[in-house]
Amino acid sequence: MSTASTPAEVWRPHVTVACVVADGGRFLMVEEEVNGRPAWNQPAGHLEDGESLAAAALRETLEETGWTVQLQHLIGVHQWRSTEHGDAVVRFSFAARALSHDPQRALDTDIRRAVWLTRTEIAALGERLRSPTILQSIDLWLGGQRLPLEVLSHLPGGGKP
């Protein structure tokens, strides 16, 4: 228990977002460089201060792939401990529909390329997948899990809790 004069250390996980963007039997993936090694992920990244989860998912997908997408559903919320840095991660996975692509757009500096792969090709990447939540979110989507985006809310501003 903390007192007003000595604030307690508060544990905070990394909050991330990711998009499962499907086109027929293929999914949008990015090859990125992580700690000097290639790794594969869905378009994904960290929530920024003041940003809604939905806005973060749209921004990260555009920055990493050049694709503008429309969010359709929340697939799930995944909690795990990263083997990359050892910290806890809470990931919000969205289903999105591809709208348009800008092939001239510069991608984030750590992104090598964005490609469309089948679920089988993604599974074959094995240890090169950045997170176990990649296949988990694809499989949930393939299994029909769809949560309405309205389950999320964003209350901008600096009000008191």
Rank of each mutant, 00 (worst) to 15 (best):
T3C: 03
T6C: 11
P7V: 15
A8H: 05
A8P: 12
R12D: 04
P13V: 06
P13A: 05
H14D: 15
V15G: 10
T16I: 07
A18Y: 08
G24Y: 07
G25T: 09
F27Y: 13
F27R: 09
L28T: 01
M29D: 01
M29H: 03
V30T: 14
E31R: 01
E32L: 09
E32N: 04
E33A: 03
E33N: 06
V34C: 03
N35M: 12
N35S: 13
P38A: 04
A39R: 07
N41S: 01
Q42L: 10
Q42M: 08
A44K: 02
A44E: 02
A44L: 02
G45W: 05
G45T: 08
H46L: 02
E48V: 15
D49H: 15
A55W: 15
A55H: 10
A55G: 07
A57N: 05
A57I: 02
L58C: 14
T65H: 06
G66F: 04
W67M: 05
W67F: 11
W67D: 00
W67I: 10
Q72S: 15
H73E: 07
H78T: 03
W80E: 00
R81G: 05
S82N: 01
E84Y: 09
H85K: 01
H85G: 00
A88L: 13
R91Y: 02
F92A: 06
S93D: 07
S100V: 08
H101D: 09
H101L: 08
H101A: 07
D102S: 03
Q104H: 03
Q104S: 01
Q104N: 02
A106S: 11
A106D: 04
A114M: 13
V115K: 12
W116Y: 03
L117I: 15
L117T: 13
A124E: 11
L125M: 05
G126M: 03
G126F: 00
E127V: 04
E127A: 00
T133W: 08
L135G: 08
I138E: 00
I138S: 06
D139Y: 00
D139Q: 11
L140H: 04
L140Y: 13
L142A: 15
G144W: 07
R146A: 09
R146Y: 06
P148A: 10
L149H: 07
L149F: 01
E150Y: 02
V151T: 01
